[in-house]
Simulated scan of single mutants.
Amino acid sequence: MKLETVSAPLGSAAVPAPIGVPLVEQAPTSWRRWLAPALSTAILIAALAQLRTLDWRALIAMVPASPLFWIVFLVSYLIPPASEWVIFRALWALPGRGFLALLRKRLSNEILLGYSGEVYFYGWARRNAALVAAPFGAVKDVAILSAATGNIVTLVLVAASWPLLRDLNLGLSARLIGYSAAVVTAGSLLTMVFRKSLLSLPRRDLVMIAIVHLARIIATTVLTAILWALILPAAPLSWWLMLATLRMVVSRLPLLPNKDLVFAGLAAFLVGHRAQVTELVSLLAGLTLATHVLLGVGLGVSELAGVENRR
């Protein structure tokens, strides 16, 4: 087959592309050039604003001294961007520095606005990745399959945990859980019905993406259980694993009110120590936010400092 060549940045190899495949634009328009830096600025501002909301002394006082806790926490924090790096590495041969862009993508979603990270990563990919086609389709497909995979896992877990949720008398009516499950099911069904219109990647790539997302969900659930067990070792790890699974179910069902209270009730029923469990949840939420803030400041500054070098 006859090949064309995509113009690559100075010092990088040219990328062959089949005739008929849209090529990445050699000279991005002004808004594309400034899209990622603008979002990086927003991440930096949001991270600095969050600094005022954190009670650092109280947070540090609650943190366990065990090095194992920090190792597990950091691994669990890095798994989401690492899983996406694996996906885009397979799709685009994404370089190692793409991991930092995926970290910024997560921070944008967490401290700015949901799916703003996808906008940031799209802009970054247009400027930095030597691609044979526009990256929008791949970024879109990865986001859609992430939501769909999470929904499917949630439905399976709802079915498995329904007897426990029903018997705990936590204010969760069967009708409310049913409506929530219906919303989740509808989203997954729409993805399946309109997959040919919504998804643009080949079937083989879509299967790979779904498998990586599934592995991410399982890994983060298990690591969350291990973190809780390290903080409150009196309860068996199996109980915390059950709680981590149930927390995922409760957090993803869209119509349930007071989700933290529901989780506290589950924890009190299974392991007792309701006050300690509340502190545990607050600790991990605070540590995650603190990590967002510190990375947001560091990565925001580094991104903005390199803007001129990439123009």
Rank of each mutant, 00 (worst) to 15 (best):
L155C: 05
L304W: 01
R33K: 10
L206N: 01
L189G: 11
N169C: 07
A159E: 08
L94S: 09
T53C: 08
A234P: 09
G265V: 01
T224I: 14
F88G: 02
A61I: 04
S83A: 13
R106H: 14
K259D: 10
D205Q: 11
E110D: 15
L223M: 04
G286T: 06
A235P: 05
A275I: 08
N169V: 11
L112V: 06
L299V: 01
R52M: 14
E118Y: 05
V75P: 02
F99M: 05
G98T: 06
T53D: 13
G298V: 14
A125N: 04
I87F: 03
L255K: 01
N309E: 15
L287D: 06
V277P: 04
T5S: 15
A42E: 05
S161N: 12
I152S: 03
G137T: 13
P257F: 06
A186T: 12
G114E: 15
K196C: 09
L283D: 00
V222W: 06
P64S: 02
A147Y: 12
R216C: 06
F269E: 12
G306Q: 10
V184W: 07
G150H: 02
R252N: 13
W85K: 00
L165W: 02
V156H: 01
A38N: 08
L74N: 09
V156A: 15
R127E: 11
A129V: 15
F88W: 04
N151M: 12
P135G: 03
K105E: 09
A13P: 13
R97H: 12
R104K: 12
K2M: 14
E303Y: 13
G171C: 01
T41S: 14
L243F: 06
G98V: 05
L190A: 14
L284A: 05
T245F: 11
L270Y: 11
T41L: 15
A275S: 12
T29I: 13
R195Q: 12
R310K: 09
L102R: 00
A229W: 14
P37N: 00
V307A: 09
V281K: 08
V222A: 08
A36N: 05
L255W: 03
S180L: 04
V132C: 14
L270H: 07
S116I: 11
D55Q: 08
S161H: 13
A47R: 03
D55E: 09
N128Y: 11
A125D: 08
M192P: 09
R175T: 09
I218G: 05
A125H: 04
R204F: 08
Y179P: 06
W240G: 09
F73K: 03
G298N: 10
G98S: 02
A210S: 08
V142K: 04
V153N: 00
V6I: 15
Y120M: 05
L157I: 01
A225T: 02
